[in-house]
């Protein structure tokens, strides 16, 4: 029933929408870090506790800055495919999405078991990273 399957363009657009959500989330966290304010905790309490923790930074840089760069690369990648339609373009993508996913899982572990607080922005980022990784495998095999 290949005829009913969504076109690759639709999947790449879905991929871009997820990357936009992740990018907005990471930019907000990065901006809050540098502006020096507190996060507005929505839905679940505890985002400040997580953002205050030692796991929120690597040296002088906030982890969220790395996240923003990751999502920016994903956005550019998706647009390059829409522009060129080169089928091999997504082959290398899992080499970025899998480490990002594993790092995200480490942050989830730190949040749940070491800090023991919930941060809605971190949950959003973990979800978007996971979805991007799954889609990157789909593209690797199907586009």
């Amino acid at each position: 029933m290949a005829g009913t399957e969504k076109s690759p363009v639709t999947w790449v657009v879905v991929f871009l929408v997820i990357a936009v959500i992740g990018f907005a989330d990471a930019v907000y966290l990065t901006a809050s870090h540098y502006i020096g304010g507190l996060l507005t905790c929505a839905v679940v309490e505890g985002c400040d506790e997580v953002a205050m923790s030692e796991y929120a930074t690597i040296g002088p840089f906030p982890v969220a800055l790395g996240g923003a760069l990751f999502y920016a690369v994903m956005l550019i990648w998706g647009v390059v495919w829409l522009d060129t339609r080169k089928s091999g373009l997504f082959r290398l993508m899992p080499y970025i999405t899998v480490p990002a996913f594993l790092f995200s899982m480490w942050l989830m572990y730190a949040m749940f078991f070491l800090i023991q607080a919930l941060c809605i922005y971190c949950l959003i980022s973990a979800t978007t990273t996971t979805l991007l990784m799954l889609l990157s495998f789909r593209f690797r095999w199907r586009i």
Binding site: V20, F23, A24, V27, Y28, A31, S32, I35, G36, G37, L38, L39, T40, A72, L75, I76, V79, L82, D83
Partner: peptide, 30 residues
């Protein structure tokens, strides 16, 4: 034209997100 639309759209989206999110973070502080 399609190429301009794609890349222009991407740059505009990213710029818009950065502007909006920095403003939101700034508003949270103030």
């Amino acid at each position: 034209n399609k190429r301009y639309a794609l890349w222009g759209g991407l740059l505009a989206t990213m710029a818009l997100i950065i502007i909006v999110m920095v403003r939101v973070a700034d508003d949270d502080t103030n």
